[in-house]
Amino acid sequence: MEKVLISRILVALDASTSSRNVLQAGITLATHFNAELNVLFIEDIDLLHVAELPFVREVIYGAPVGRSINVMAMERSLQTQTAQLRKLVESIARENQIKITFSVMRGNVARMLCDASQQTDLLVIGKNTQLLLKSRKIGSITRLVLSTARCNLAVLQYGSSIERPVVVVYTGDRTGQRALALAIELAREDHNQLIIVLPAVDDSEYQQLCESVQNNVRDPSLQISLTRLSINSAEQILQVIQQVHGRILLLENDSAFLTDLEQQLLITQSDIPVILLR
């Protein structure tokens, strides 16, 4: 079975305080895979564009009326944000005794992230949940990155962290095998417990997938639980996760058994981190 090499991890941060969890998840994964960890903060160019519009005001929580903004003030605010973030990263690196490189870029956030994803093995991002409806739980940037990024992708809800047990959706194809390999690697630290979800529409397919699992998983120390999906849907996978108390989900991107919409729904509705293998 083909092993997945994760030697470079890129964590995308924004200025919110909750992105600390995203960084912590990146550190956990980097430590596990012994990978190089890079942190990227992208100054949103759109903010500078908006600041140039004379009538736009910044609506601040607790302030009775909106505040006028301008480019200079926005520049200063971004600089402050960047400095604070750099400080935060440095302090977390010290706490965890890990080397982290921190870089700052300016531009369109989604595009810059996609560009940066070409240079990394795993991109870790958070999904904004504060401002949107439940049905559209991920932001436009996350949506764009999901569809565009070339590397493996870890999507976290702000506040969540990398925990076990690991749940992997195994389709038997090459990417599925890569997902299974990565899941095995992640599962080793949790009493070797691994839950494998098999999206098989009929018994023969299920039998094949079971055999495939047996062929590919030769480590006798692993405690494997096989779960068959009755219906191939995001909702069904979420139910399985809830039943088995799964804490992290691995699945292949662009899999045949889930439509793009279903996959997006799965990521939207999932309260646990999802790692998409490409």
Binding site: A15, S16, V56, V59, R67
Partner: peptide, 14 residues
Amino acid sequence: MRLLRTPHGFAFAP
């Protein structure tokens, strides 16, 4: 219009 997160709050951009 798009709702953007600014360093201190929110702003709308066309």
